[in-house]
Amino acid sequence: MTEVSTIQLNLGDKAPDFHLPRDGGGDVRLADFAGKPLVVYFYPKDDTTACTTESISFTALAPEFHKAGIAILGVSPDSVKSHDKFVRKHALSIPLASDEEKTMAIAYGVWREKSMYGRTYMGVVRSTFLIGADGLIARIWDKVKVAGHAEDVLAAAKEL
């Protein structure tokens, strides 16, 4: 059984390190983004309505993030195989990390108890972290509402 996340990151905290497999093969680690701002968005599940909308929104704005020197990484507990299918189906350009063991979700404090229709269960709380070029947490969005979120993140990232 995966433990519940009791960690709560705050602004100015050092971003927790990670090393995970990613879509398309290979892996991704925090060190890959050293010296540049990074947006990490955690989402619950590939190919569900809100998660698809969020990933498509970040993909649509990816050229603007890139032009501003800001990297983006999506993270969910889905497998690499699931990510590959999700990327192909929706022509996503954002790298997606597979956190099947929930180690990154726990480290970032987003693996928490959730409830729906009176049932409680463990899952990823949709959250986004803006990590500055210095490796410190510059901004946190918790319990994200998808509409307009990618645009808000882009605006905040450009202010770094």
Rank of each mutant, 00 (worst) to 15 (best):
S57W: 12
N10Q: 02
Q8P: 01
I70N: 06
H19K: 15
L38T: 05
R29W: 07
V40C: 09
R29L: 14
V87A: 09
K14M: 01
A62Q: 11
P16Q: 04
A15N: 05
T103M: 06
G74V: 03
H90N: 14
T59D: 09
D47M: 12
Y121C: 06
A31L: 00
D13V: 08
G118W: 09
S115R: 09
R22M: 15
Y41Q: 06
R22V: 13
A31P: 14
A34W: 01
G26H: 08
V4T: 06
A97L: 13
A50G: 15
V87G: 09
F33S: 06
A50F: 01
F42S: 02
K81S: 14
S93G: 15
S5I: 04
M104F: 09
T103A: 08
D27K: 12
D78I: 10
K67Y: 04
E3I: 12
E113L: 03
S82D: 10
C51K: 04
Y117H: 04
A97R: 11
K85Q: 10
V39H: 06
T52R: 00
L38Y: 02
L96I: 06
I72K: 00
Y117P: 11
L20F: 02
E3K: 14
E64Q: 02
F33I: 09
Q8K: 04
I70P: 05
S82F: 01
V39L: 10
I56G: 08
V80E: 13
A31K: 11
N10M: 01
N10E: 05
S5P: 01
Y108E: 10
D78A: 00
C51H: 08
D32K: 09
L61Y: 11
G25F: 05
I7R: 09
E54I: 04
I94N: 14
H83T: 05
A91G: 13
G74R: 08
E113A: 03
D46H: 08
V80K: 03
E101Y: 07
A107M: 03
R88P: 05
G26N: 01
A105M: 03
S79F: 02
P16V: 00
A31Y: 07
